[in-house]
Amino acid sequence: MSQGLRRLAPQLVTLAAVVALVSAFFPGFLAVEIADGRLVGSAVDVLKRGAPVALLAVGMTLVIATRGIDLSVGAVMAICGAASAWAVSNGLGLGAALALGLGAGLLCGLWNGVLVALFGIQPIVATLILMVAGRGVAQMITEGRILTFSHEGLAFFGAGDVVGVPTPILIWIVTGVAVGLLVRRTALGLLIEAIGINRPASALAGVNARVLLIAVYVASGLCAAIAGIVVAADIRGADANNAGLWLELDAILAVVIGGTSLLGGRFSVAASILGALVIQTIDTGILLAGFPSEFNLVIKAGLVVIILVLQSPRLGPGLPGFGLRAPRAAGVARTEKATE
């Protein structure tokens, strides 16, 4: 347990620092109250608004651990949200809507997985196809308009609450815990890391890399499907043009802030979720601070650069709690340079 906490220490410290910074600009940030029987407050908003990126980050972590990347998740969100909205607005039940949404995500994941695992296409290229084409598919489902619905059952997944806690928060917690347990209480996580570190070697050692690779892309597609349903339910409508737009980049950033190397290998689902919360805290903090909107992206970029530099292996070891695993962090620093 203490080892798990040590792994998460840099992300926890980062999150605390960002929360402290936002609180300095907006003192009531952590205040939570109960209004109309549900939790209300900026911190609750962060946990709720962070749901899409947190969900995407869960799937993205597994993909990145295999040394892959999934650029299509934003478009898959749009497809799945559109499929669910289409189902309820055509009089199908909630069950059918969820099945269609999740089924679409599963198919998208399967498509990516087959391209990567069977045809050996580089993940960035393979998933780029669906990233571009997927939004078109979503637009076909919605016929180019925002598909509005008033189905309370589906809206519950975005705007409802369970004993006062907004549903999206519960959804990402359950998904994160389920996937975390699945990969850490079984050998799955170890096998995924093995593929990411050295696929031929893992194959020689008897790991069925093909099936496992397809499985992680399917998992990513399913996570994107859940995120897409949450986003559509939240606004009671499927907006094919904007749902999940650019969220794949936030999801990758969340994984990187979570300390998982883009070069594959060791990963932590929990750390990626913390990364997603760090990003959302920054986003919400910027909105609360009331700066003119021209500054939004500059402030976000500045904070992200500071966070990544502090986590870098050169600076990290000098700070308590940072850079505990230099080899893994080294990968982060290298990719950072590559994206500059």
């Binding site: 907006f26 009531g28 209004a35 209300v40 407050g41 900026s42 908003d45 608004r49 925002i146 986003v231 939240d234 606004i235 409508g237 907006d239 904007n242 749902a243 919400t284 909105l287 609360l288 009331g290 003119p292 909107s293 939004n296």
Partner: peptide, 26 residues
């Protein structure tokens, strides 16, 4: 009193409005 971009989208409008409500005494 407050002005922020919601990017012309529904979800943007909802998210930013939530922050407005928080920042302006609920």
């Amino acid at each position: 009193v407050r002005s922020q971009t919601g990017d012309f989208t529904r979800s943007g409008g909802k998210e930013v409005m939530e922050s407005f409500l928080q920042a302006e005494g609920g």
